[in-house]
Design a protein around this nucleic acid. Sequence first.
DNA 1: CGTTCTTTGTTCGGTACTAAATTTAGAAGC
DNA 2: GCTTCTAAATTTAGTACCGAACAAAGAACG
Lengths: 401, 401
Amino acid sequence: MSQPGQATTRGDLVRAAVLGLLGTRGPSSRADIARVLGVSPATVTQVTKDLMARRLVTELESVPSQGGRPARLLGLVDSAGGAIGAKVTADHVRIVSVGLDGTVHASSSVDLDATGARALDDLDEILLEAVRAHEGPLLGVGVGLPGAVDAQASGIVDAPTLGWQRLPVGPRLRQTLQVPVLLDNDVNTLAAAETLYGRGREHEDFIVVTIGRGVGLGIVQHGVVSRGAHGGAGEFGHTPVAGDGPLCGCGNRGCLEGFVGESGLLDAARAAGVVGPRGSLRTLVTAAHAGDPGALGVYADAGALLGRALAGAVHLLDPEVVVLLGEGIDEWPFWESSFDEAFRRHLMPARRGIRWIVEPWSEDQWAVGAASLVLASPFDAVSTGREGELVRARLQISGAP
Amino acid sequence: MSQPGQATTRGDLVRAAVLGLLGTRGPSSRADIARVLGVSPATVTQVTKDLMARRLVTELESVPSQGGRPARLLGLVDSAGGAIGAKVTADHVRIVSVGLDGTVHASSSVDLDATGARALDDLDEILLEAVRAHEGPLLGVGVGLPGAVDAQASGIVDAPTLGWQRLPVGPRLRQTLQVPVLLDNDVNTLAAAETLYGRGREHEDFIVVTIGRGVGLGIVQHGVVSRGAHGGAGEFGHTPVAGDGPLCGCGNRGCLEGFVGESGLLDAARAAGVVGPRGSLRTLVTAAHAGDPGALGVYADAGALLGRALAGAVHLLDPEVVVLLGEGIDEWPFWESSFDEAFRRHLMPARRGIRWIVEPWSEDQWAVGAASLVLASPFDAVSTGREGELVRARLQISGAP
DNA sequence: CGTTCTTTGTTCGGTACTAAATTTAGAAGC
DNA sequence: GCTTCTAAATTTAGTACCGAACAAAGAACG
């Protein structure tokens, strides 16, 4: 049962939301803020008055106006805070330090044997170092992981590929770092980033599909990342697409990932003779670029399979758009035509008009996504829970009452 | 962007929620109400005091207690309101009149050619008659339809099987009936009913799967029915499960529904020689009951296919449980073993423990589901919008300030 | 049989919001 | 160059909620 509109969950939601909005959306007028946040103009006046008194916000120039009193833009005084984002993979951690507006101030990568026994200790240490190195006010740390996280504000992690089972990553990190720590599945962090800085600014309901080592999917409904009962939603890669097939990491056969994930592509390339028995994915990529028909066929088959499976996901979830991302997206031109053909063909007529969008990919994106867990918390009191409160509290330090 | 906790959306959410809770959950103590609704005990005291002054609620007996002050139960004075639920199919409308506690007071079925040109006029008339026949205070009318509804509080309907395209059913009905009208896809209404009276009382995240003419799926996340961008979420029946297959109603081939929906079963039965070229589904059912291996094989194949596809849905949505329902559920024993085998086999290990539950089916259930859109509106200020406000306002009529 | 414990329910002061009316400030019409 | 229109911001009075401290009412224990 949902909770009715409560007055105070401690920490003043609107105040934090205004700061978060000014950070992520840039300077805005009071009236804009009221509209976007869905609060009354009166409240915005009150809150901004207070924030200006505390020197967290200033009034900028007026904008022209189109037939009424000109709007006066408000902006953050300076970087009122930053966040650290970390993406954990099997062999390293990628760390970025970002400002409220999502700009990356620092970026690094540290080796980590995430499958080892000391993995959690090492991660602890690495992140502690990052927190120490961070300059300026730190709102919190966001962590993206290749597994299921019970809740962002908790952080008990199941990650079969790392051999992690109910590992209390969140509690451990909080204890060491002494700042708010939010965790989520890596694909969900990309979805969170997308709601803040990407398609979420135009769409309330969409899905994010990642192509890379595996295939992932993040669900955004009503502007909020949908995580399922145990944080395990979006396991698109293990959609059964065939009764049989290559053995998947999950132990089953016939998973989508077994055909269109990195290893699936490689298997297909070997079977087609495009790549030798010890060849790597790079060989396949260069062959495709060279126009090798076998290589192109591998991608075409994968694209068709992905398109068919994705049609099923679209039927289930009814998103407005599909956003495609991930390390593997550079090779998208090879997937595209067969994907689109299969996708459309298997969609019901009413959905056939749905758009898919390929977003450019950069190395840092996973980690930026993780950081956006922190930066999104002013807007998401539900899933960020107590840690979100702490982040919001940190947004408002400095300045007298 | 979500709205932070607002104070008043007109209509006093908690007051309506308390009444709704006492209706659906039965007599409860103030402390219980506070816990279930997630509001403070102080608020419950205030609100119930007011409701008792208005003679909408009375104090009942005290209950024993287990080690503290005994709880004093509160109950509705009498049926503070009822709702009408209607399920529209291609050839008839099923209508029920239910009390706040979900008990069916009246039930009827009226012929309707929903595919005809006068369909909306006829529906209008039929429901107006039902509203007139309703005794006691009427909170509103809920309508379940075999198609996509843009929003419960709006009601623009796309229903390809009825030939309806962007038909303004909601606006029309509101104009004629002059009571709040909420509409949704029929499977979603079942999911709504389940959150109120069924599994939703124990689980926050689950999915509802219907088996009958087609195959439907309703998604409940965080206690709320998830509808997608255009109200079209849950089109599980059109999941592509094969590259080719029988032509589906949606115009594609290879849809799940084409294999496990009524017509799919019939096709398979004909192909297996269990049923003659002009035979009906009933023949298949009786053959299965008689132990005919061919008939059992038809169901076994369907079960395996459903299990595989449902594993994919579970991977995507991560529900706590799966609830199985629908007209076709009577034959479930024939599906069961092959379904469960395929379902488990295609689930990733972490999900393999998920339970599925078959619920008994009755003729009225669709219509009761529709009515529960109205009865759930005290708990769901978001998706019921303005119509929900009207329902809540109607819950509180009578009695001076 | 008093003391302590546990849970229920109330009182009270405070706060974060709202709606409605008002003021402010420019664009547009004539 | 006055009015009229439109949209932004503020003021004002009010309200729906919360937290914390407290009172009530029985169970459990010596």
